[in-house]
Structures are given as C-alpha cells and as structure tokens.
Amino acid sequence: MVAPEAAAGAQRRASVSIRHEDFDLSAEVAALRAGIPAVGAVCAFVGTVRDRNEGASVATMELEHYPGMTEKSIEAMIEQAFARFDILGARVVHRVGLLQPQDQIVLVAVSSMHRGESFQACEFLMDYLKTQAPFWKKEVTPEGARWVDARVSDDAALARWGIASGNA
C-alpha cells in the first residue's frame, strides 16, 4: 500500500499486488473507484502471454521476481505517477510463477477525474514497469527454455517521459 498523502481534498487510492493468482479486471476496476465519486475516468491495461515470441512458439512462460524490491519499486513508480499526473487512484497487479499462453500477466489501472490523465499515467506506469521493476521471463519453446531478452524499444518508451533507462 502506498502511503496516502492527502492532497487538498483529494481522495487517493493506490496498491500493488505481486502474486501467483489471476485477477478479475471488473473487480479490480470496481475496487479502484468504489466510494470515490470524483472519479470520471478509469484506464486499464492488461498484458497477456502470447503464444509466440521472436519467431518461436511459446508453450509456457515462467516469471521470476525479486520479492521485496518488486513491491518497493512499483510503489515508487506510483508515487511518481501521482506527482506527475492529476490522478485519483492506481492499482498494479503482476503475476509470477508458471503461466500459459493467453493467461493474464499484468494489470495497470488508473483513475482520474478526466480521461487524459488516466491514459497518460497508465502508459507511464507500464513504460516504467517494463524497464525498472525486477521481473524476468523465461519461456519454453520447441527448441528448449530461454530467458527473454530486454528490448531497447522499452528504454526508448520510458525516455519519452524524460526518464533515462539503460536496462536493455
């Protein structure tokens, strides 16, 4: 839970969950805006497991993370999102462990009074998460298991927000 810093009159809701279990988009969005009548917009991104990557078919994917640092790093990202955008709430769920094609991997949902801030903050959080949160994907293909390579394009995506990233 990100510590609530009540900006004048604003109700603020932020939380992070790293877990094996799947998530329910409707329930997550409902919880994000429940009891906050100032919310006029919710933008949610869901990342899922593709059945193909880098020219190979993917049978399964395993996600490893750095317990403790993962939560802290995403909470710090949410703090930055609140500082940059006029948003009311943010919710991040990221799954770890063994996943199959079509499974949901990640949810980033943001609420705000108007749509522009939610759209921007949602993309900001995803760009940040891709290059700064300590997760690693290993996929099983017909040629065997392999660790997924980081993409330079993800660093470029974060650079759009004026944040340098040398991850890939």
């Binding site: 990221h94 990640v106 998460l129 300590p134 997760f135 690693w136 997924v148 991850n167």
Partner: peptide, 10 residues
C-alpha cells in the same frame, strides 16, 4: 546487493 540481467516484466 543483487546482480541480475536486464529486467523483462510487464
């Protein structure tokens, strides 16, 4: 201290 390869979550 932790050492690891570039991250690939999301």
């Amino acid at each position: 201290v932790a050492f690891f390869p570039p991250v690939t979550g999301g």
